[in-house]
């Protein structure tokens, strides 16, 4: 599904990603962990198509297409979804208008007619229940005045609406209390199918109790320095990152 080969990326001339290699197959859940500043968020931003990062080397294919040549919106329409670490507030743009535009742009890309207003609202209702998001939130402007937890739930709601093939959850657990974490993780798990995959970027093993990964990768200084199974996350929790940093 996703194949990253020797990916290098810069911001303002400073190299952040220094040769990432990663293969993700349909149905797999990959966790990426790593200390602050290791390049986790840069990786997700580069995959989503953020212009401030410059890819200097390497290639990324997503479902057979050269991902790096696609615009951010086409990446989304191809089935890539980034759950933002810090979701953006957009005053004046209602959730309904935002989601309707997004869903219909996805449909147009697939050659489908736009959803009727009633079908769209029905879809919203279903997906809201699935991720246990408060109805009132979707009547408001996008993320405006949402609490940290509400913003993260809203990301998962958007994911439920867009049904991506590959979801990148960038520190979706940060700023969440235990209840919100459970709701968010349940939402992700309910959306899981044998075909779709996810990349879970996190600092803490706690999230991986809920979203169980098939693989755990440790990112350090712009490279994946260790790959293992979920036990690796437990080991990290136990020992911290020092043994990685010290190159043990």
């Amino acid at each position: 599904m996703l194949s990253i080969k020797n990916l290098h990326a810069n911001i303002n001339g400073k190299e952040i990603l220094k040769g990432i290699n990663l293969e993700i197959k349909p149905g797999e859940v990959h966790a990426i962990m790593g200390p602050n500043g290791s390049g986790k968020s840069t990786l997700s931003a580069v995959l989503a198509g953020r212009e401030i990062f410059e890819v200097t080397q390497g290639e990324v294919t997503f479902n057979g297409k050269n991902l790096l040549e696609l615009s951010p919106e086409d990446r989304s329409r191809e089935g890539l979804f980034l759950s933002f670490q810090y979701p953006i507030e957009i005053p004046g743009v209602s959730m309904v208008n935002f989601m309707k535009t997004a869903v219909n742009e996805h449909r147009k890309y697939k050659g489908l007619e736009p959803l009727s207003a009633s079908d769209f609202l029905k879809l919203m209702r279903e997906r809201k229940e699935l991720v246990e998001i408060d109805s009132a939130l979707t009547n408001r402007a996008v993320n405006e005045g949402f609490s940290g937890g509400e913003k993260k739930k809203n990301e998962i709601f958007q994911m439920a609406m867009l049904e991506p093939k590959l979801a990148i959850l960038d520190e979706t657990d940060s700023g969440l209390d235990i209840d919100a974490l459970r709701i968010v993780a349940n939402g992700v798990n309910k959306l899981k199918t044998p075909e779709n995959s996810s990349i879970v970027i996190t600092h803490y093993q706690r999230l991986l109790d809920y979203i169980v990964p098939d693989f755990v990768h440790i990112l350090y200084q712009g490279r994946i320095v260790k790959t293992g199974t979920k036990e690796l996350a437990l080991e990290l929790e136990d020992k911290g990152y020092d043994w990685i940093k010290n190159g043990e």
Partner: peptide
């Protein structure tokens, strides 16, 4: 960018922002 990351074209994203 947030809107583009949801599949909304740059033009539509600009229009939504202006409309908002």
């Amino acid at each position: 960018f947030y809107m583009q990351a949801r599949g909304i074209s740059e033009r539509e994203a600009r229009l939504l922002l202006m409309f908002g």
